[in-house]
Each structure stands twice: as C-alpha cells, then as structure tokens.
Computed example of a mutant assay.
Amino acid sequence: MAHRNFRKEDFVKDEGSKQYQVEFRKGNIGIGSDLIVERENDNGEYETLQAEIRRHDDSIFVCWSEPFNGRVIFDE
C-alpha cells in the first residue's frame, strides 16, 4: 500500500459546504476506490477517519470539518 501525506496548510475551505478539503489528482493516487484517510494525532500516531471523499473530473477531494495533518493510503 502506498500513501501520500498532507498538512493542515494543504486544506482549502469550501464555502458551499463549510468544510475544508484537500485535493489529489487521480493520476497520483488512482481512481480512489480503496482510499483510507488517516489523521495524525499529537503522539505522531495515525487514526483512521471516515472522511467524505468527493470526485470531480480528474480530482479527488478529502473533506473534513477542520484541517488536520494526515495521509491517504491507496493501492498502487
């Protein structure tokens, strides 16, 4: 399994949904059928989230109520 890390600063607020989202390209993480989203806690460990995942054109968006440091795990 491969992964892509992201930081709080990568999130952008979506005014329509009032959630924050981070964008990935399908070419970088696949089509998104088996994505796992994990949030890094204060101890540096990861916990799995049931984050909303949206797809639009060639982009995949991970959405959450506030920005966080984490990673997306996917099949290569």
Rank of each mutant, 00 (worst) to 15 (best):
G16N: 12
K26M: 13
D57R: 12
N69F: 14
D58E: 11
D14M: 08
K18H: 02
G16C: 02
E23H: 07
D34A: 09
E45C: 09
S65Q: 09
R55F: 07
E52R: 10
D57E: 15
E52H: 05
C63P: 11
E9D: 06
D34P: 15
L49D: 00
F11Y: 13
S17H: 05
L49Y: 08
V62A: 03
K18V: 00
I60R: 14
K13W: 04
I60W: 14
L49V: 04
E47I: 03
D14S: 15
N43E: 02
Y20G: 06
R54S: 10
E52P: 00
E9L: 14
L49W: 02
I31T: 15
A51V: 07
E23F: 15
G27F: 14
F24R: 00
F61L: 09
F11Q: 04
Y46F: 13
S59K: 08
N43V: 03
I31P: 15
S65K: 07
D34M: 06
S17G: 04
N69A: 06
G44S: 02
Y46R: 13
K26T: 15
S65V: 03
R54F: 10
I53E: 04
I29K: 07
G44L: 07
N69S: 13
D10C: 08
Q19R: 11
N28V: 04
N28T: 09
D58V: 10
L49Q: 02
C63R: 13
V22Y: 06
K8Y: 06
W64I: 07
E9V: 12
